[in-house]
Nucleic acid binder design. Structure first.
Length: 923
RNA sequence: GCCGGUGUGGCGAAAUGGCAGACGCACAGGACUUAAAAUCCUGGGGCUUUAAAAAGCCGUGUCGGUUCGAGUCCGACCACCGGCACCA
């Protein structure tokens, strides 16, 4: 495919359509210039800055760490074979504009880019074609990088990272070891080194200690049922399964017990929830995280099993302990481990049959498709601890083993699901809550007043639900049969995958004295653990990872064997923002100095004390709301507890860019044929127009449809800017030269002369007003991330300035500074031309200090003020800006079109909003 | 079902409680041109009255409220988009 930039530019040059301005000469010229100059290199503490670098020229020789920092981050892309789509540059343009703006304000800006390159698509492609994933990954990265570079983003490419680079994933593995070698201390609420773990006194042998230790690690091995996707040949995390299908590819997922690595994210549930208060994320995103964590407050209650050894008890979790008197039966999940104990001989057959039937159902069949409740009676009974009645124990698949305790007390009177079940199976339904509004109590699930809820020791009758909950919980606690509990929906993170293209675990398995397999961490010196080379990357049907095929790699000389699972794609993206801080450090994932400077805080923080900003601004799509963003927060907190980072949260402010839809307002997809290829747009209109259009479409966070006509609009605007600055005759000459010259030579741009109206004269008051209104609007809008209205402010400036017969150089120069962050190539070109024409010291626009607006210049002498009568606009009056309220009132009443509306009426009141409006209330 | 977001011209959109529709697209008219493209200028919410200038009325999803004044604040509802969902 001839998708080379130069080729496309020549092709577009030859097309009949006349171009607005020679962007195809300007854009590569400045991209090359920035590259050669390393213009956007961010400086770490202690680094010496070459005197020739524009940062040094602007800020002198003072060390970088004395400048305020600004860390502005994009979600790094997965370099797919399809190349960049128009959604990527939306966020990237926004952050680029802000990076350039912050540099102009004098900040030391860290704005890096990298590649999240481990993952399934590369591996599947490898299986299909037989190429090593490394090869395709490198090709894809090269394409992405070329496309991203052609947009002129001001990334510090010296910090580029690639998660598949052993120099990078060495530290992903290192962080895994930190998790492995830590435990969560509930007393301190923090991750602590595993060496500090206290052992219960009853453990005596080292084997017992080891087994205990292994159950406490933040990275642990579990045999619980997991989401297995046969089609992908791997297990998946809960977060990667949507409606019972794999997020990638949409293949069926079944539950199956497998020995897997888990990360103890649940220990951090409360902190992950609480700390959302300390960061500036969108309301909806925080809500999604809260939802996923799914905290609910309630009580655990023990129900003794009747007619059995009293040690048998069923523990349930309920958010409605106040309805305990209404619990008329119990339901266990079919997988619950007490089912076998409880089931009576008569019921064994039907229970087994049901368990068997359920186990064959996918999650989708168990939930979405199941309209009718199913279940069977176990034959066993439990004792309701408050009514002392025997209540039947059922099993049913509407009770999930993975939530709460895997068992419920059923209160059919006040729970929709229990009611449905009870009606189907003729189980007793009693009322224990009286609705406040007199509705039917059956199936009433909201708060009300407790009724029928008393035994000789306790009565809830007459109490509103919240008080009834408190009272019964306290009573249960006093009896030792229950306690207040907080339950989370969040499950521990399934962290291993049966894949080739991922980080190997730094873990080996050995046999202990008794011949049992146990795991052991490799020492740090063994890192990075490189994956073996394989001929066959295909998953195995048994679920054994493909790495197991590399026999020599798996077997170590001392007889131990390597862990053959690999880490999920999220591992690399969990901490990449930290590696950017110090990407070439081979002694640590990042130096403490770099971490303190870039993640630390020089500004004053607001409310709670623990807050430090971390990444100042993070921009990316919502699709990572509960995956990457939750996992990264979790890892960051562990690193924080262990003293490796200085902030509890990684990303202080986070903005989601909205999805860009196709021209037909539908999601872009190949099948719909509405996909816009950035390369095409770039070839036709140039990078500056592309960037500007993506920002002009509407607010960053909104979902919005693409319009190629809209690109033409901003492209015309850039053409107007060009013509505002350059001499038309000299441009015609350039065009003629271009038609004769074989290859486009950027040096030809030198022949373009500045427009003769641009002169070194003092600006008129009206010109200054136009300029300063623009400075004010653009500055304020950049602070508020309102790129679309900032651009319209610049359009207003140009629409005005184009009619000026004299264009004062100082005004035009400041306008270019405003334009710079948005359309950097064009602005640099004109900025340089301006300097050259007036023999000014050439200055890099990238580091020129941001213009300041002067409010005094915006003050008007006279004002046009609308006059309303009874809230309806009737006329406008012109008054002196200094006019008193009385004068304004008099002028308003005297206005020609106002008088007819006052005739025969008395003026009751007059509202005068200074400099804004007059409203006359008359009756 | 629960949670969140969004509803403004033909379209993308803009408006610290104070002139609704800035800016742009599309469209229409004009200038330039042999012509077209490009460019430049002008005009566009709806309805009614008028030959016209002009004037009046209506208008920000629907209904109601607060206010001198509501796209904006409050209450109820409707539609669309996104997330979660047999979560006890």
């Amino acid at each position: 495919m001839p998708c080379d930039g130069a080729f496309l530019r020549i092709a577009s040059l030859m097309s009949s359509e006349r171009k607005q301005y020679p962007f195809w000469l300007i854009e590569p010229k400045w991209q090359k210039f920035w590259d050669e100059q390393q213009a956007f290199r961010a400086w770490n503490p202690g680094e010496s800055i070459p005197a020739s670098h524009p940062f040094a020229q602007r800020h002198g020789h003072s060390p970088a760490q004395e400048r305020p920092k600004f860390y502005i981050l994009d979600m790094f892309p997965y370099p797919s074979g399809a190349g960049l789509h128009v959604g990527h540059p939306e966020g990237y343009t926004a952050t680029d504009i802000l990076s350039r703006y912050r540099r102009a304000l004098g900040f030391n800006v860290l704005h890096p880019m990298g590649w999240d390159a481990f993952g399934l698509p590369a591996e599947q492609y490898a299986i299909k074609t037989g190429q090593h994933p490394r090869t395709t990954t490198e090709q894809n990265i090269a394409t992405f990088k070329r496309q991203i570079k052609s947009l002129g983003f001001s990334y510090d490419w010296s910090r580029e990272i690639d998660t598949t680079d052993p120099k990078y994933f060495k530290w992903s593995q290192w962080i895994f070891l930190q998790l492995y070698n830590s435990w969560f201390n509930p007393a301190t609420g923090k991750a602590e080194p595993i060496e500090k773990l206290p052992y219960p006194p009853e453990l005596t042998t080292e084997n017992e200690n080891r087994a205990y230790r292994d159950t406490k690690r933040l990275a642990y091995v579990s045999d619980a049922p997991v989401n297995w996707c046969p089609e992908l040949g791997t297990v998946l995390a809960n977060e990667e399964v949507i409606d019972g299908k794999s997020e990638v590819g949409g293949y069926p997922v079944i539950r199956r017990p497998m020995r897997q690595w888990m990360l103890r994210i649940t220990a951090f549930a409360e902190r992950l929830l609480e700390d959302l208060e300390t960061i500036e994320w969108s309301h909806s995103l925080k809500e999604m995280q809260r939802n996923w964590i799914g905290r609910s407050e309630g009580a655990q209650v023990d129900f003794p099993v009747a007619d059995r050894n009293p040690n048998y008890k069923i523990t349930v979790f309920t958010t409605r302990p106040d309805t305990l008197f209404g619990a008329t039966y119990m339901v266990l999940s079919p997988e619950h481990n007490l089912v076998d104990e409880i089931t009576t001989p008569q019921q064994v057959q039907s229970v087994r049959a049901y368990q068997d039937e359920v186990s064959r159902k996918s999650d989708l069949e168990r939930t979405e498709l199941a309209k009718e409740k199913t279940g069977v009676f176990t034959g066993g009974y439990a004792i309701n601890p408050v009514t002392r009645q025997k209540i039947p124990i059922w099993i049913a698949d509407y009770v999930l083993i993975s939530y709460g305790t895997g068992a419920i007390m059923a209160v059919p009177g006040h729970d929709t699901r229990d009611l449905e079940f009870a009606q189907k199976f003729n189980l007793p339904i009693v009322q224990v809550v009286q609705p406040a509004g007199g509705e039917d109590w059956r199936g009433y699930v909201d708060d009300g007043i407790s009724v029928n809820s008393a035994n000789p020791e306790i009565s809830l009758n007459g109490l509103p639900t919240p008080e009834a909950k408190k009272k019964i919980t306290a009573w249960l606690e006093s009896k030792g049969v229950g306690e207040k509990t907080i339950n989370y929906k969040l499950r521990d993170w399934l962290f291993s995958r049966q894949r080739y293209w991922g980080e190997p675990f730094p873990i080996v398995w050995k046999k202990d004295q008794r011949g049992e397999l146990c795991h052991e961490a490799l020492p740090e010196s063994a890192l990075p653990v490189l994956p073996p080379s394989l001929d066959d990357y295909k998953p195995t049907p048994t679920g054994e990872p493909p790495l197991a095929r590399a026999k020599h790699w798996v077997q170590l000389p001392d007889g131990s064997i390597r862990e053959t699972n690999t880490m999920p794609q999220w591992a690399g993206s969990c901490w990449y923002y930290l590696r950017y801080l110090d990407p070439h450090n081979d002694q640590a994932f990042c130096s403490p100095e770099a971490e303190h400077y870039w993640m630390g805080n020089r500004r004053v923080t607001h409310h709670a004390s623990r807050i430090t900003p971390g990444v100042d601004l993070y921009v990316g799509g919502t699709e990572h709301a509960v995956l990457h963003l939750l996992y990264a927060r979790f890892w960051h907190k562990v690193l924080f507890d262990l003293g490796h980072v200085s902030t509890p949260e990684p990303f202080f402010k986070l903005v989601n860019q909205g999805l860009i839809l196709g021209e037909d307002s539908q999601k872009m997809s190949k099948s719909r044929g509405n996909v816009v290829n950035p390369d095409d747009i770039l070839a036709q209109y140039g990078a500056d127009a592309f960037r500007l259009y993506e920002m002009f479409m509407g607010p960053l966070e909104m979902v919005k449809p693409w319009s190629t006509k809209g690109v033409e609009g901003v492209y015309r605007f850039l053409g107007r800017v060009w013509r505002l600055f350059v001499d038309e005759a000299s441009e015609v000459e350039l065009e003629q030269q271009l038609t004769t010259s074989a290859s486009p030579d950027p040096n030809l741009l030198a022949s373009v002369r500045l427009h003769s109206s641009i002169q070194d004269v003092a600006p008129a008051a009206s010109q200054l007003k136009t300029l300063h209104a623009c400075i004010k609007k653009v500055t304020e809008d950049l602070e508020g991330l309102r790129f679309n209205t900032a651009i319209s402010a610049m359009m207003i400036f140009v629409n005005d300035a184009i009619s000026w017969s004299v264009r004062p150089r100082s005004v035009m120069k400041q306008f270019l500074q405003l334009l710079g962050p948005f359309a950097p190539h064009l602005a640099e070109e004109l900025f340089a031309k301006l300097a050259a024409t007036f023999n000014e010291q050439p200055e890099s626009l990238s580091y020129a200090s941001w213009p300041k607006f002067d409010p005094a210049l915006l003050v008007e002498d006279t004002l046009e003020i609308p006059v309303q009568v009874n809230g309806k606009l009737r006329d406008r009056i012109v008054v002196a800006a200094a006019a008193t309220e009385e004068q304004v009132q008099a002028a308003a009443c005297a206005a020609e079109k106002v008088r007819p509306f006052l005739e025969g009426k008395t003026v009751k009141k007059m509202i005068v909003v200074p400099k804004k409006l007059v409203n006359i209330v008359a009756a």
